[in-house]
């Protein structure tokens, strides 16, 4: 930290003006980032008439939750007018197992690759890591064929498998980098105490992994919940996840454009990940940076 307060040569009013300017710039930026969210919320609470008459930034004169209700229960996705709620549950049914399975596999992979190193462990890790970076377009075509052959086309189970397979490299990276910093002596001590591979994992390693488990769960949840490409490619129709449904609602060209419903649906889609971010922002940032800076 190199800050004006400590390191500025100026004193008095000049310093005060500088600080004032600093806060002004920061507040302007905050407004820039918040603006879309505020508009989204305020639009979702207006009636359609008010949207047409009023301005983007004006607050709703009459607050109504009709748009929310409509988006949740009645909005049309394609020809089905069942609201976004069934797609919300599709996303839940897809995200929860995929997050749990990929996190568990990442944990045990990371443990094996760091604490029970075998010949070629580094190569195995490097090959796994590579999967984090491929553009998924390159696997779309074969995957749709394989899912078809497995009878998993357009199913939630198929999406779970896809997300587990391509989430593995991230979770393995997280856990591997975390376990590298745990002293090997812990495993040696437990070996002498008579514990084996799985006992050490369950009784000693897993209980001290809470922070990285949180990072991994949050990262995977955000990725999987926000995914659109796999959802759109492999799960059309009634099994589509929420992002696909949202895009469908918004880009439907038939009928009157209901901006308030669009915004309500968008908020509903964004809410789970936003909630996770607000509640566990620290871990969210850790996941982001762990994904970008390798060790």
């Amino acid at each position: 930290m190199a800050d004006i307060q400590t390191y500025s040569h100026d004193a008095g009013w000049k310093h005060t003006v500088l600080r004032g300017l600093l806060y002004l710039v920061l507040i302007l930026f905050a407004a820039y980032y918040l603006f879309p969210l505020i508009v989204m919320i305020s639009t979702s609470l207006k009636s359609l008439d008010e949207i047409r008459e009023g301005s983007l930034i004006s607050l709703p004169r009459v607050v109504t939750f009709d748009a929310w209700n409509y988006a949740w229960n009645e909005a049309c996705v394609g020809v089905e007018c069942t609201g976004i709620k069934i797609y919300f549950w599709n996303s839940v049914k897809m995200a929860v197992p995929a997050v749990l399975i990929s996190t568990f596999l990442g944990a045990i992979n990371g443990y094996a690759l760091t604490k029970w190193r075998f010949k070629g462990a580094n190569i195995v890790f490097a090959l796994l890591l590579f999967g984090c970076f491929i553009p998924f377009q390159v696997v779309l075509l074969p995957m749709s064929q394989v899912l078809g052959k497995l009878g998993l086309a357009s199913s939630t189970a198929g999406l779970v498998m896809v997300h587990v397979v391509y989430g593995l490299c991230f979770t393995t990276l997280f856990f591997r980098n975390y376990y590298v910093s745990i002293p090997d002596e812990l495993v040696k001590a437990a070996t002498i105490d008579g514990a084996g591979f799985f006992t050490i994992f369950w009784r000693i390693i897993l209980p001290i992994s809470t922070p990285i488990i949180v990072v991994s769960v949050i990262w995977q949840f955000t990725q999987i919940w926000n995914d659109f490409l796999f959802g759109a490619s492999f799960a059309s129709g009634a099994n589509a996840p929420m992002t696909v449904a949202l895009n469908n609602i918004v880009n439907t060209t038939t009928g009157v454009k209901q901006y308030n419903v669009d915004m309500a649906a968008a908020l509903l889609t964004g809410l789970p990940t936003l909630l996770v971010y607000v509640l566990a922002g620290k871990y969210f940032v850790r996941g982001l940076t762990a994904g970008s800076v390798k060790g």
């Binding site: 930026f29 905050a30 980032y33 603006f35 879309p36 969210l37 508009v39 989204m40 639009t43 983007l56 955000t222 919940w225 926000n226 995914d227 659109f228 992002t243 949202l246 895009n247 918004v250 901006y259 669009d262 915004m263 649906a265 968008a266 908020l267 889609t269 964004g270 990940t273 936003l274 996770v276 971010y277 607000v278 922002g281 969210f284 940032v285 982001l288």
Partner: peptide, 19 residues
């Protein structure tokens, strides 16, 4: 400053399309 990163690109696209 960081919260947009938690949103799906679809949500971002929807809101900016409106803006």
């Amino acid at each position: 400053f960081l919260y947009p990163m938690a949103l799906s690109f679809i949500v971002t696209g929807t809101v900016w399309k409106w803006l």
